[in-house]
Design a protein around this nucleic acid. Structure first.
Length: 550
RNA sequence: GGCUCCGUAGUUCAAUGGAUAGAAUAAGCGUUUCCUAAACGUUUGAUAUGGGUUCGAUUCCCGUCGGAGCUACCA
């Protein structure tokens, strides 16, 4: 594009392009031609230039990736669910996104620590505990065969039902809505239980430990199936006190101030935000307080951390603005580099997911139904007939998960996205299975090729399909870098898709094993090998694995 | 009320201020004696609206309309 230079050069775009083109062609050996179209200068590079690039790419151990641990440590937080409700579709987007960004940062050379904060403290836990005590009949995951998170979730719903019923009754008896909400006996009991918990009441703490353990066991099963993991867990029940201490220290430094009623605040009006409370009148910690404590603890645990990435929904943008400002004022300069990886909601055709209205898409159910769907497709094709049942199930799972992960990650994280359960998730077109299929194809060709040599391909003339493929493979590092800068896996997803499509086109148009010229056959096999590697490694950045067959 | 984000084919998604706005899906047509047709080729179809800045705007600025979110001593 030569427009920006026209003023400087005092020339018309076409003339300038012509002159520039002539100059570059003369000075740069790899440029063998050019043309000028409407102010755009297009340079033509020689086939040997592309062939030598290909040879170079083949020699890399992991083409596209930066040297491991060559860049500073970044911490990525994701998942962090409430411990009283099972995981749903929104959590899937969160987990896949966080895990993928961690992978991408690693590929960019960063040291990465994957963390999660477990929200195991507060009134919400007490609600499930209370309902279980009242009507649980000592049910356990073992006695009911339910996953622990599902069982606890059941009692959370039970509590809510009872609570609503009591509000109705109180309102019928003449209370206002606010009064009814405050005076409902179950809510009072839950608050009482929270106080007992905070005071270390042995019975309450024991129950809390028991039920939390159920939930974690359930979550672990789900995480395993999702294919995500964490390097370190942080528990809110352990960090909220640290948060409070940091706030108390901050008062002395003049960062926070105390109001007459004893509550503690920070004034952020100079930053364009409001005043924000950080400790209640009674001195107890709030949500932000806990986050302050957790953030500082993490910086202390991993002093080489230059940035913390928080994978949390976009409804909390204000919260993180506040948090980062507070950290800055407390003297943590790293907060400038901290980033709220804010993502949009997954919407259903009928609107927002609401657990109370039963319109949630459960994570376990969805993953299961994706695997079931891929089983149906695969059985129709009958290509896996000779595999054992266990091997088949493994393949179905890998395909189902790829469809799901790719579906959620190919979209710009910042945007809300639509999920239609009826139409479900596709296995054709711009999808995970399409890309897996392309990969399987590369492996099948290589398998059938048997022994072959990487011939010196210098001097070959490239056809457009070969050239497109090389050019695209050559741009792989750029895609990884851009995804890292923008914290955006969709960039990688787009690359994988483009690569697969380009390979499929090449595969269709150019015989690989049929090619009679040995040198050209070697070139095409090399391209096939490199493409397979890049598809697999790029999809691994999304957390998607490749089946050997499908 | 104030603040933030979003609005692109029937539908789901793309496009560092640049070339003829790309894909997928749905619908139609074609391609398997040749490396697995979950593939390939091909036809139809879109920038909510009115202004502005610019050689050039889906992109930046202002207004209108429509959608979502935040604005707790909740988490």
């Amino acid at each position: 594009m030569v427009f920006p230079l026209t003023k400087l050069a005092q020339a018309k775009p076409e003339e300038l392009g012509q002159k520039l083109g002539e100059f570059i062609q003369e000075k740069v050996a790899d440029v063998v031609g050019f043309n000028v179209v409407k102010g755009f200068l297009n340079l033509v590079f020689s086939d040997d230039y592309w062939l030598s690039n290909m040879t170079q790419m083949m020699q890399q151990a992991q083409w596209g990736f930066a040297a491991p641990d060559s860049k500073p440590r970044m911490m990525v937080e994701y998942s962090s669910p409430n411990t009283n409700k099972p995981l749903h579709l929104g959590h899937l987007r969160n987990n896949f996104l966080g895990y993928s960004v961690a992978q991408i940062l690693k590929a960019n050379g960063h040291k990465v620590t994957k963390v999660q904060i477990i929200n195991d403290r507060g009134i919400h836990i007490c609600k499930s505990m209370l309902a279980w005590l009242n009507s649980g009949k000592n049910e356990t995951p073992e006695s009911t065969g339910m996953k622990g998170d599902k069982l606890v979730g059941k009692y959370y719903v039970e509590f809510d039902k009872q609570y609503k019923k009591e509000i109705q009754e109180l309102m019928a008896a003449g209370s206002s809505e606010d009064e009814a909400k405050q005076n409902a006996p179950t809510m009072k009991a839950a608050q009482e239980m929270l106080r007992a918990w905070e005071n270390g009441d042995a019975e309450v703490v024991a129950l809390w430990k028991k039920m939390n353990a159920w939930v974690y066991a359930g979550f672990d099963t789900t995480y395993k199936r999702m294919g995500v993991d964490f390097d370190q867990l942080y528990f809110e029940s352990e960090t909220y006190l640290k948060g409070r201490d940091e706030v108390l220290k901050g008062i002395e430094k003049g960062v926070f101030f105390k109001k007459d009623d004893g509550s503690v605040w920070i004034d952020l009006t100079d930053e364009g935000l409001d005043e924000k409370a950080v400790l209640r009148r009674d001195g107890t910690a709030m949500y932000v307080t806990q986050d302050i404590g957790t953030a500082i603890l993490r910086f202390e645990d991993y002093p080489d951390t230059v940035s913390q990435i928080y994978t949390v929904g976009n409804e909390q943008e204000y919260h993180f603005k506040v948090l980062f400002k507070i950290l800055k004022k407390l003297g943590w300069q790293q907060s400038d580099a901290c980033y709220h990886l804010s993502y949009g909601m997954v919407e259903l055709p009928e609107g927002k997911m609401k657990s109370r209205e039963g319109t949630v898409v459960d994570a376990d159910d969805l993953m299961e139904s994706m695997a079931a769907e891929s089983r149906i497709v695969a059985d129709e094709q009958g290509k896996l007939a000779d595999l054992s049942e266990a091997e088949k199930t493994e393949v179905y799972n890998v395909i189902g998960m790829s469809a799901l992960k790719y579906f959620l990650l190919r979209v710009d994280p910042k945007k809300n996205m639509m999920f239609n359960p009826q139409e479900s998730i596709d296995f054709n077109g711009n999808t995970g299975p399409f890309i897996q299929y392309g990969y399987v194809r590369t492996q099948a060709v290589l398998r059938k090729a048997g022994e072959w040599k990487r011939a010196n391909v210098e001097g070959l003339e490239l056809n457009p399909y070969e050239k497109n493929l090389i050019q695209l493979l050559f741009s792989y590092p750029e895609a990884i870098a851009q995804a890292g800068i923008q914290f955006d896996p969709s960039v990688v997803a787009a690359f994988s898709y483009e690569l697969t499509k380009t390979f499929n086109s090449f595969y269709q148009q150019c015989g690989i094993l049929k090619e009679e010229d040995e040198t050209r056959k070697s070139l095409r096999l090399q391209l096939t090998e490199l493409t397979g590697q890049c598809i697999a490694s790029s999809m691994l950045l999304l957390g998607v694995s490749m089946p050997a067959r499908m």
